[in-house]
Protein backbone atom coordinates (compact mmCIF):
# COMPACT_ATOMS: atom_id res chain seq x y z
CA UNK A 1 0.00 0.00 0.00
CA UNK A 2 2.78 2.40 0.81
CA UNK A 3 3.90 2.57 -2.79
CA UNK A 4 5.08 6.03 -3.76
CA UNK A 5 2.51 8.04 -5.68
CA UNK A 6 5.23 9.99 -7.44
CA UNK A 7 8.89 9.28 -7.80
CA UNK A 8 11.09 11.74 -9.62
CA UNK A 9 14.59 10.65 -10.43
CA UNK A 10 17.44 12.88 -11.61
CA UNK A 11 15.04 15.14 -13.46
CA UNK A 12 16.89 17.70 -15.56
CA UNK A 13 15.87 20.36 -18.03
CA UNK A 14 18.37 22.18 -20.21
CA UNK A 15 17.01 24.96 -22.37
CA UNK A 16 19.10 25.52 -25.46
CA UNK A 17 18.87 29.10 -26.56
CA UNK A 18 19.99 30.57 -29.85
CA UNK A 19 23.27 32.48 -29.62
CA UNK A 20 23.60 31.98 -25.87
CA UNK A 21 25.03 29.13 -23.83
CA UNK A 22 22.64 26.39 -22.73
CA UNK A 23 20.71 27.11 -19.57
CA UNK A 24 20.06 24.43 -16.97
CA UNK A 25 16.73 25.38 -15.40
CA UNK A 26 16.36 22.16 -13.42
CA UNK A 27 19.43 20.24 -12.36
CA UNK A 28 19.18 16.55 -11.42
CA UNK A 29 16.45 16.70 -8.84
CA UNK A 30 15.05 13.59 -7.18
CA UNK A 31 12.25 13.25 -4.65
CA UNK A 32 9.41 10.93 -3.71
CA UNK A 33 5.83 11.60 -2.65
CA UNK A 34 3.71 9.15 -0.70
CA UNK A 35 -0.08 8.75 -0.82
CA UNK A 36 -1.88 11.39 1.19
CA UNK A 37 1.22 13.47 1.59
CA UNK A 38 1.37 17.18 0.97
CA UNK A 39 4.74 18.35 -0.21
CA UNK A 40 5.69 21.99 -0.53
CA UNK A 41 8.12 23.18 -3.17
CA UNK A 42 9.55 26.58 -2.42
CA UNK A 43 12.12 28.76 -4.08
CA UNK A 44 12.54 32.24 -5.38
CA UNK A 45 11.17 33.41 -8.71
CA UNK A 46 13.06 31.80 -11.55
CA UNK A 47 14.36 28.91 -9.50
CA UNK A 48 12.67 26.41 -11.82
CA UNK A 49 9.50 25.44 -9.92
CA UNK A 50 7.17 25.73 -12.89
CA UNK A 51 9.67 23.93 -15.09
CA UNK A 52 9.72 21.01 -12.63
CA UNK A 53 5.96 20.59 -12.59
CA UNK A 54 5.63 21.09 -16.33
CA UNK A 55 7.98 18.15 -16.74
CA UNK A 56 6.09 16.05 -14.19
CA UNK A 57 2.84 16.69 -16.08
CA UNK A 58 4.71 15.99 -19.32
CA UNK A 59 3.80 19.34 -20.83
CA UNK A 60 7.54 19.79 -21.23
CA UNK A 61 9.94 17.03 -22.25
CA UNK A 62 12.68 16.41 -19.70
CA UNK A 63 16.26 16.45 -20.92
CA UNK A 64 17.19 13.68 -18.54
CA UNK A 65 15.74 11.64 -15.72
CA UNK A 66 12.53 9.75 -15.13
CA UNK A 67 9.07 10.34 -13.71
CA UNK A 68 7.28 7.41 -12.10
CA UNK A 69 3.62 7.92 -11.30
CA UNK A 70 2.01 5.22 -9.17
CA UNK A 71 4.67 2.70 -10.16
CA UNK A 72 4.39 3.44 -13.87
CA UNK A 73 7.21 5.12 -15.77
CA UNK A 74 5.52 7.91 -17.71
CA UNK A 75 8.67 9.66 -18.93
CA UNK A 76 8.25 8.51 -22.53
CA UNK A 77 4.47 8.34 -22.73
CA UNK A 78 2.65 10.14 -25.49
CA UNK A 79 -0.78 10.30 -27.15
CA UNK A 80 -3.43 8.01 -25.75
CA UNK A 81 -1.24 6.59 -22.98
CA UNK A 82 -0.48 10.07 -21.73
CA UNK A 83 -4.13 11.11 -21.83
CA UNK A 84 -4.93 8.17 -19.55
CA UNK A 85 -2.30 9.38 -17.10
CA UNK A 86 -4.08 12.73 -16.82
CA UNK A 87 -6.98 10.99 -15.08
CA UNK A 88 -4.65 10.45 -12.13
CA UNK A 89 -2.71 13.70 -12.15
CA UNK A 90 -3.98 17.25 -12.46
CA UNK A 91 -2.54 20.71 -12.12
CA UNK A 92 -3.78 24.13 -11.11
CA UNK A 93 -1.88 26.63 -13.23
CA UNK A 94 0.04 29.65 -12.01
CA UNK A 95 -2.13 32.12 -13.96
CA UNK A 96 -5.78 31.26 -13.35
CA UNK A 97 -7.42 33.54 -15.91
CA UNK A 98 -5.07 32.54 -18.73
CA UNK A 99 -5.60 28.87 -18.04
CA UNK A 100 -9.19 29.02 -19.31
CA UNK A 101 -9.84 29.31 -23.04
CA UNK A 102 -11.22 32.84 -23.59
CA UNK A 103 -13.73 31.42 -26.09
CA UNK A 104 -15.13 28.69 -23.84
CA UNK A 105 -17.20 29.00 -20.69
CA UNK A 106 -15.79 28.00 -17.32
CA UNK A 107 -18.27 25.12 -17.31
CA UNK A 108 -16.83 23.82 -20.59
CA UNK A 109 -13.34 24.00 -19.15
CA UNK A 110 -14.25 22.26 -15.91
CA UNK A 111 -16.23 19.52 -17.65
CA UNK A 112 -13.72 18.92 -20.44
CA UNK A 113 -11.87 16.10 -18.70
CA UNK A 114 -15.16 14.42 -17.82
CA UNK A 115 -16.44 14.64 -21.39
CA UNK A 116 -13.15 13.19 -22.61
CA UNK A 117 -13.64 10.26 -20.27
CA UNK A 118 -17.03 9.34 -21.65
CA UNK A 119 -19.40 11.25 -19.36
CA UNK A 120 -22.65 12.34 -20.98
CA UNK A 121 -23.50 16.01 -21.36
CA UNK A 122 -26.14 15.80 -18.67
CA UNK A 123 -23.95 13.99 -16.13
CA UNK A 124 -21.14 16.44 -16.79
CA UNK A 125 -23.40 19.42 -16.22
CA UNK A 126 -24.58 18.10 -12.85
CA UNK A 127 -21.05 17.25 -11.80
CA UNK A 128 -19.77 20.70 -12.81
CA UNK A 129 -22.46 22.28 -10.64
CA UNK A 130 -21.44 20.08 -7.73
CA UNK A 131 -17.74 20.92 -8.21
CA UNK A 132 -18.43 24.64 -8.42
CA UNK A 133 -20.43 24.54 -5.21
CA UNK A 134 -17.75 22.51 -3.50
CA UNK A 135 -15.26 25.22 -4.44
CA UNK A 136 -17.53 27.97 -3.16
CA UNK A 137 -18.98 29.24 -6.43
CA UNK A 138 -22.61 29.25 -7.47
CA UNK A 139 -23.85 27.13 -10.36
CA UNK A 140 -24.32 30.07 -12.74
CA UNK A 141 -20.54 30.49 -13.00
CA UNK A 142 -20.59 27.54 -15.38
CA UNK A 143 -21.96 29.73 -18.14
CA UNK A 144 -19.55 32.62 -17.60
CA UNK A 145 -16.46 33.38 -19.63
CA UNK A 146 -13.04 33.76 -17.99
CA UNK A 147 -12.96 37.54 -18.47
CA UNK A 148 -16.29 37.86 -16.69
CA UNK A 149 -15.02 36.61 -13.34
CA UNK A 150 -12.44 37.85 -10.87
CA UNK A 151 -9.01 36.30 -10.41
CA UNK A 152 -10.03 34.60 -7.18
CA UNK A 153 -13.19 33.16 -8.68
CA UNK A 154 -11.19 31.95 -11.65
CA UNK A 155 -8.72 30.29 -9.30
CA UNK A 156 -11.56 28.42 -7.62
CA UNK A 157 -12.88 27.34 -10.99
CA UNK A 158 -9.37 26.17 -11.86
CA UNK A 159 -9.29 24.08 -8.70
CA UNK A 160 -12.73 22.71 -9.55
CA UNK A 161 -11.41 21.75 -12.99
CA UNK A 162 -8.37 20.03 -11.54
CA UNK A 163 -10.53 18.04 -9.11
CA UNK A 164 -13.19 17.06 -11.66
CA UNK A 165 -11.59 13.80 -12.70
CA UNK A 166 -10.69 12.92 -9.07
CA UNK A 167 -6.92 12.81 -9.46
CA UNK A 168 -4.66 11.05 -7.00
CA UNK A 169 -2.02 13.72 -7.41
CA UNK A 170 -2.87 17.40 -7.46
CA UNK A 171 -0.21 19.92 -8.37
CA UNK A 172 -0.84 23.52 -7.36
CA UNK A 173 1.53 25.90 -9.09
CA UNK A 174 1.34 28.99 -6.91
CA UNK A 175 -2.39 28.52 -6.63
CA UNK A 176 -2.61 31.34 -4.12
CA UNK A 177 0.09 33.80 -5.11
CA UNK A 178 -2.05 35.95 -7.37
CA UNK A 179 -4.73 36.37 -4.71
CA UNK A 180 -5.12 38.71 -1.79
CA UNK A 181 -4.70 37.42 1.74
CA UNK A 182 -8.35 36.75 2.59
CA UNK A 183 -9.05 34.82 -0.61
CA UNK A 184 -5.75 33.03 -0.12
CA UNK A 185 -6.98 31.87 3.30
CA UNK A 186 -10.21 30.56 1.78
CA UNK A 187 -8.38 28.63 -0.92
CA UNK A 188 -6.09 27.09 1.70
CA UNK A 189 -9.14 26.17 3.78
CA UNK A 190 -10.68 24.55 0.72
CA UNK A 191 -7.54 22.52 0.02
CA UNK A 192 -7.33 21.53 3.69
CA UNK A 193 -10.92 20.35 3.64
CA UNK A 194 -10.19 18.26 0.57
CA UNK A 195 -7.20 16.71 2.26
CA UNK A 196 -9.26 15.65 5.24
CA UNK A 197 -12.04 14.25 3.08
CA UNK A 198 -9.84 12.27 0.73
CA UNK A 199 -7.20 11.12 3.18
CA UNK A 200 -4.60 9.01 1.42
CA UNK A 201 -6.45 9.26 -1.92
CA UNK A 202 -5.13 12.73 -2.59
CA UNK A 203 -1.54 13.91 -2.56
CA UNK A 204 -0.72 17.52 -3.19
CA UNK A 205 2.45 19.05 -4.58
CA UNK A 206 2.15 22.61 -3.42
CA UNK A 207 4.31 25.25 -5.06
CA UNK A 208 4.68 28.46 -3.25
CA UNK A 209 7.21 31.06 -2.29
CA UNK A 210 5.61 31.83 1.02
CA UNK A 211 7.43 29.73 3.57
CA UNK A 212 4.92 30.51 6.32
CA UNK A 213 2.09 29.11 4.26
CA UNK A 214 4.06 25.97 3.55
CA UNK A 215 4.73 25.59 7.26
CA UNK A 216 1.06 25.41 8.16
CA UNK A 217 -0.04 23.38 5.17
CA UNK A 218 2.60 20.83 4.19
CA UNK A 219 4.06 17.65 5.70
CA UNK A 220 7.34 18.14 3.97
CA UNK A 221 9.13 20.88 2.13
CA UNK A 222 11.66 20.94 -0.69
CA UNK A 223 13.74 24.05 -1.18
CA UNK A 224 14.71 24.73 -4.77
CA UNK A 225 17.54 27.07 -5.60
CA UNK A 226 18.85 27.60 -9.13
CA UNK A 227 17.33 24.33 -10.28
CA UNK A 228 18.74 22.23 -7.44
CA UNK A 229 17.08 20.93 -4.30
CA UNK A 230 19.23 22.44 -1.61
CA UNK A 231 17.28 21.27 1.40
CA UNK A 232 14.35 19.09 2.33
CA UNK A 233 12.60 17.97 5.48
CA UNK A 234 9.70 18.81 7.76
CA UNK A 235 8.76 22.47 7.48
CA UNK A 236 9.17 23.20 11.20
CA UNK A 237 12.54 21.53 11.23
CA UNK A 238 13.75 23.37 8.14
CA UNK A 239 12.60 26.72 9.43
CA UNK A 240 14.00 26.25 12.90
CA UNK A 241 17.28 24.84 11.81
CA UNK A 242 18.12 25.54 8.18
CA UNK A 243 21.22 23.75 6.96
CA UNK A 244 21.76 25.49 3.66
CA UNK A 245 22.86 29.14 3.47
CA UNK A 246 20.24 29.91 0.81
CA UNK A 247 17.42 28.50 2.95
CA UNK A 248 18.65 30.55 5.87
CA UNK A 249 18.62 33.61 3.69
CA UNK A 250 15.11 32.81 2.46
CA UNK A 251 13.82 32.37 6.01
CA UNK A 252 15.56 35.46 7.31
CA UNK A 253 14.09 37.58 4.57
CA UNK A 254 10.57 36.57 5.53
CA UNK A 255 10.63 36.37 9.31
Amino acid sequence: MDQAILKVDNLTKVFSRKGKPDFTAVDHISFTMHPGECVGLIGESGSGKTTVVNMITRLLDPTEGSIILGGEDITRFSGRELRKVYARMQMVFQTPTDSFDPRCTLGDGIGESLRNNGWSRKETKDEVTRLLEMCGLSADFASRYPHQVSGGQCQRAAIARALAIKPRLLICDEATSSLDVTIQKEIIALLNKLRWEKGSDLSILFICHDIALVQQFCNRVLVLYKGKIVEQGEPDEVIRNPQDPYTRHLIDSIL
Binding site: N54, T57, L59, R83, K84, Y86, A87, Q90, M91, F93, Q94, T95, D98, S99, F100, D101, P102, G109, E112, S113, N116, N117, R161, I165
Partner: peptide
Protein backbone atom coordinates in the same frame (compact mmCIF):
# COMPACT_ATOMS: atom_id res chain seq x y z
CA UNK B 1 2.28 28.15 -25.55
CA UNK B 2 -0.83 29.48 -23.84
CA UNK B 3 -1.76 28.06 -20.43
CA UNK B 4 -5.28 27.23 -21.59
CA UNK B 5 -3.95 24.97 -24.29
CA UNK B 6 -1.78 23.22 -21.76
CA UNK B 7 -4.84 22.91 -19.54
CA UNK B 8 -6.77 21.37 -22.44
CA UNK B 9 -4.01 18.81 -22.93
CA UNK B 10 -4.10 18.09 -19.23
CA UNK B 11 -7.85 17.50 -19.53
CA UNK B 12 -7.04 14.62 -21.82
CA UNK B 13 -8.30 16.22 -25.04
CA UNK B 14 -6.96 14.66 -28.21
Amino acid sequence: ETPYLKAARLSGSG
